[in-house]
Amino acid sequence: MRDTKMADLSTPTSILSPGLPEAVREAQSVFRSLMMALARPGTVRRIAVPVQSPGNLSPAATAIALALCDFETPIWLDEDLSSDEAILRYLRFHTGAPVTPDRGKAHFAFVSSGTQMIDFDAFSPGTLEYPDRSATLVVPVDELEEGRGWRLTGPGIASESRLLAGPLHPGFVTALAENRLLFPRGIDVVFVSGDRIAALPRTTAVEV
């Protein structure tokens, strides 16, 4: 089996927790969950792979990084996550992704909590010509439940769906609304809670 992951042999692997034990199958499984979560906003899905996530990074966020990030995708981590050497080492070793301090360059951004104010404007929403050159924001929450909470409408939703995600900073929903106005530019949000995920693409309208 060919493995494109370039291992940095100078790093002592013994102190690192392992990545995806069955990388090919599990990366597909994580991606598929995320793909369907994004295609059906408001639905909550389980990331069904065993990961030993480093430090404060949630298992689902870790699985997303392992499945989708590599040397082509700069990652941004908030202060809390980026100050944890174990997280940095883990991501660098298992994904090879460069960790950037520049939010505007990040393809994927991970924060330690949704309760802090997240400055959406600092991330790239892409351009009108290339709206795909935008960031995906991964936000951990304690509660993540479908069927109640916000009222969601937009592509991927038959009539309306409901999603409870929280706790979040009071400015979060406003930021989502402003983000939606940028369409087709904008950032896409993935909520993670333990091993569960839900996603809000930039197209989803959120009513409290």
């Binding site: 990366a27 597909q28 991606f31 995320l34 793909m35 994004l38 295609a39 499945a67 989708l68 990030c69 590599d70 082509e72 995708t73 393809h107 709206p131 795909d132 935008s134 995906t136 991927g156 369409f183 087709p184 904008g186 896409d188 693409p201 930039r202 197209t203």
Partner: peptide, 14 residues
């Protein structure tokens, strides 16, 4: 696959 998967996610979002 990762590169294509990322493109698919963007495609769904836009």
């Amino acid at each position: 696959k990762r590169m294509i998967r990322r493109a698919i996610l963007k495609a769904i979002a836009i």
